[in-house]
Nucleic acid binder design. Structure first.
Length: 824
RNA sequence: GUCCCCGUAGUCCAACCGGUAGAGACACCCGGCUUAAACCCGGCACAGUGUGGGUUCGAAUCCCACCGGGGACACCA
């Protein structure tokens, strides 16, 4: 007989993983499609991955966190839908296909297969029967269907205008996909190009996107709500019409400060607007204007956005008439006014707008103060914007700014030269892309009938084969070269017509996939409304903050459209949102070029799936970044081994009555259950792990030097540990459950039932303070009478010594935890 | 420049309504096991909460200012 612990059975994560994975495949404990299932429902959803290669550390963190939530609700008796799929259209597939001369589909499906295998091994509690791939025609046909519904409702339209163009990706981009003047994907500086493109009218939903955020308050990260508010950028103000000398039609400007109209001393139009070109035409200023326009066009968007830049502009030799005082003010073309915000023209009030003041000082233009303030912008060079009293403003004199704004709007409205106006920063969503690997836009261009929708019974419009097609980006979609595919008969007149050759932005795919999961194989409709009604809105959405605006704004928009179509009965798709942090190494994001890449497969091989999952969850609060240099997966593995050994040490039989067990051990177990529940529900998963570790330590001591391995309370502790641990470390937990004599799967066990009686303490430690400093501790009954407690405290020798004979001014008693004696 | 969040042991992090600053871990150190080491087991220690004020019987927690870090917005009229 060998009692050497080194010879004892060892925790072998490879063996455990290999043993349980096939069993789980067989049992499929996370299937959620049974119509007879009467358990209450929960929908937990992780943002689906893009299949760009195998899973990486970031995926591991996100899916480990989502899994804690999903598995917890399963154990708590809910019918949990926890689906997964692939965001499978997009440029990386196309670029890889060009590079390696293969089909984007082949590349994509291979990666999906690899990721799927990795996820299975990572023990994610996904319902594998609901998998969807957005590049399947059975999925994207419904993109096309939605597009056509929006087209019918006037929510999808085509227009010719200046758009963002990524010269590297050779395609247009939506505003949301241009970050600081660069392409969101490839960081190339974005340029402008005039093209006819398809748009979705998200601006029509701007107010609802803002107002419905109230529902999300406190349930979504404040940061995301703020970013969306900023992005939508609603502002209140007025439209004011200015007569232009020598022009028939007046020009309207948008201003948030109509009260300062008397202080307008010049007028500015965006240099790159049609209006500027028109006003400059035929004037002496035209050559100089054109030179300036060329210069501005050559300036990158990035530099143009730099507000610290010196103001530039050209006087157009023309004048506008201030509608309230008839004053003639000069018109300038400048690049600090944006062509696509407001009306592309502004009234400049240098005294009360910093940009206008900067411009006025550069061009030596007059500055008229119309709102009183302690400082004078003409001297300080700083425009004032506070709520002062109006001066030099005729009928507004004496009013404060907040009073003057509505008054001025009234005056303008009466005179028919202006009106109240709301403006938004949000623009319509540009969805056409000049690339192959996406959803074809289901429109046929007919020389006689115009834009004709593809009849719904002809959907999907499938992508043509890449056979013989040159996918390399040339600024027009590769689909244009598929002659057989492009040339069709017009569905309306039967004449020769052409298919639209652009494909949709991949953010279309992800704008409604969470609805499709409820009914992934429906071939009659995108989903059955009653199934969506059963599961949505989703109880919990988990994903990175990178989508704070893009995907999350588009999805909210899409759902509101679906609501208006009568397809869904809610307006916000995700009740709660959790943004997990990123996985870093040595303080920065991991990347090959930085040489700080940590490979998930290496980590999994070294310490096992459970240890990696545990490390991800234990490293800190889920929304914090994890620096992999600061975590110890080996430490996680050691803890799992410790926990696992407990199961092997239990000697009582399964089903033994825990109430006959050691009371101290039982109290520790039930305290842990209570704490773990509370911590999971408030998303403090790191604390969950800490609490379980604590219970493992206590149980170890009970076995070695306490009530012993045969005590029923020890079994209760070990079983509770196995169940609670299963949300983080399912393999280890499953093996413990098995060693404890139970049938698989631990995922089907019930969450341990808390006995509140065991949370009651026989005695508590009462702290006795003198002048707020702890002097003594008393062991008292939790329901001690305050008066009695005070007597006890006052009798304490330490307290009396601390008082040093000084009198007592007052005594604060917070029975049973605290007494504070305040001396004179 | 404006707004928001965060500063707690060497490190990562706990601490419900203001009420004993420490749950858990990493690293270190010490001890046990070992021929030795690793593994394993046990243990000790380390901060008074960025700084300075204020409110309070009592402040990590509330308020103000500053410092440091992170984030959002930033010619949006």
């Amino acid at each position: 007989m060998n009692t050497d612990p080194r010879e004892a059975e060892q925790y072998d994560f490879v063996d455990i993983q290999q043993r349980w994975l096939p069993v789980w495949d067989e049992l499929a404990p996370f299937r959620s499609g049974d119509p007879t299932d009467s358990r209450p429902k929960k929908y937990v959803i992780d943002m689906f991955p893009y299949p760009s290669g195998d899973l990486h550390m970031g995926h591991a963190e996100a899916y480990a966190i989502g899994d804690v939530i999903a598995r917890y609700w399963v154990l708590k008796g809910f019918n949990v839908m926890h689906p997964i799929g692939w965001d499978a259209f997009g440029l990386p597939a196309e670029n890889a296909a060009i590079k390696n001369n293969l089909d984007p589909g082949t590349w994509t499906y291979e990666n999906i297969a690899q990721q799927k295998a990795s996820m299975r091994n990572f023990a994610c509690s996904f319902d594998w029967d609901r998998v969807l791939n957005t590049c399947d025609p059975s999925y994207y046909r419904w993109n096309q269907w939605f597009f056509l519904q929006m087209f019918k409702r006037g929510l999808a339209y085509r227009k010719f205008s200046a758009v963002n163009w990524c010269p590297n990706c050779q395609t247009v981009l939506a505003n949301e996909q241009v970050v600081a003047g660069e392409c969101e994907r490839c960081d190339t500086v974005v340029t402008k190009k005039k093209l006819a493109q398809w748009y979705l009218r998200i601006t029509e939903y701007a107010d609802r996107l803002l107002e419905d955020m109230q529902e999300l308050e406190g349930k979504w990260p404040e940061k995301v709500l703020l970013m969306q508010r900023n992005w939508i950028g609603r502002s209140q103000g007025a439209h004011v019409d200015f007569v232009i000398e020598g022009r028939e039609e007046p020009v309207t400007v948008y201003t948030t400060r109509p009260d300062t109209l008397f202080g307008a001393t010049f007028f500015v139009v965006a240099v790159d607007s049609d209006l500027a070109a028109e006003l400059a035409a035929g004037t002496q200023a035209q050559p100089e204007f054109e030179k300036y326009l060329e210069k501005v066009k050559a300036t990158s968007e990035m530099d143009r956005l730099d507000s610290s830049r010196e103001k530039t502009g050209v006087f157009l030799e023309r004048y506008a008439i201030n509608p309230v005082n008839g004053e003639k003010i000069p018109i300038y073309a400048a690049d600090y006014v944006l062509a696509d915000y407001g009306t592309g023209a502004i009234m400049a009030v240098p005294a009360h707008d910093q940009r206008d003041l900067d411009f006025a000082r550069t061009f030596d233009l007059p500055v008229n103060v119309v709102v009183e303030s302690e400082t004078d912008p003409r001297e300080t060079g700083i425009a004032t914007a506070d709520n002062g009293v109006l001066i030099n403003s005729g009928p507004l004199d004496g009013l404060t700014k907040v009073e003057a704004i509505p008054r001025m709007i009234e005056i303008l409205t009466e005179r028919g030269t202006g009106e109240v106006a709301t403006n938004y920063r949000l623009r319509d969503w540009l969805i056409s892309r000049q690339r192959y690997w996406g959803t074809p836009i289901p429109i046929i261009h007919c020389p006689t009938c115009g834009e004709v929708p593809v009849p719904e019974d002809q959907l999907p419009v499938e992508l043509p084969s890449t056979e013989g097609m040159d996918l390399s980006p040339q600024g027009v979609s590769p689909l244009a070269t598929a002659t057989d595919w492009v040339n069709v008969a017009c569905p309306q007149c039967g004449g020769a017509a052409l298919r639209d050759t652009d494909t949709m932005d991949t953010f279309v795919d992800s704008s409604w996939y969470f609805l499709r999961y409820t009914d992934p194989n429906n071939s009659e409709a995108p989903f059955a409304p009653e199934k969506v009604k059963e599961w949505l809105p989703a109880d919990q959405y988990v994903g990175g903050v990178t989508h704070a605006i893009l995907h999350l704004l588009y999805s909210r928009f899409w759902v509101k459209v679906a609501f208006d179509m009568g397809l869904v009965d809610f307006v916000e798709p995700f009740t709660r949102l959790l943004n997990q942090g990123m996985v870093l190494k040595d303080g920065s994001a991991m990347s090959k070029s930085r040489g700080n890449l940590v490979r998930l497969s290496d980590e999994l091989g070294e310490n096992g799936v459970d240890a990696i999952r545990l490390s991800m969850v234990f490293a800190g609060p889920p929304e914090d970044d994890i620096d992999w240099a600061e975590v110890s997966p080996a430490g996680s593995r050691k803890f799992l081994a410790r926990a696992w050994r407990l199961a092997g040490d239990v000697t009582s039989a399964p089903g033994v009555d825990p109430t006959t067990g050691d009371l101290g051990m039982r109290k520790a177990t039930h305290k842990t259950i209570a704490d773990v529940e509370q911590s999971i529900e408030s998303m403090r998963f790191n604390v969950v792990v800490a609490r379980i570790m604590e219970l493992v330590n206590v149980t170890r001591k009970a076995i070695d030097s306490g009530c012993g391995p045969a005590d029923p309370a020890v079994r209760e502790a070990a079983e509770s540990i196995a169940i609670m641990l299963s949300v983080v470390a399912p393999y280890t937990a499953e093996d413990m459950w098995n060693k404890l004599g139970h049938q698989p799967s631990v995922a089907r066990a019930a969450w341990p039932v808390l006995d509140p009686a065991l949370l009651v303490q026989d005695s508590v430690i009462c702290v006795v303070q003198v002048a707020g400093k702890v002097k003594d501790r008393l062991e008292v009954s939790p329901d001690i009478d305050p008066a009695e407690l005070e007597k006890l405290a006052m009798a304490s020798e330490v307290v009396l010594a601390a008082l040093e004979g000084k009198g007592v001014r007052t005594v604060i008693v917070r029975a049973p935890k605290l007494v504070n004696v305040v001396p004179q």
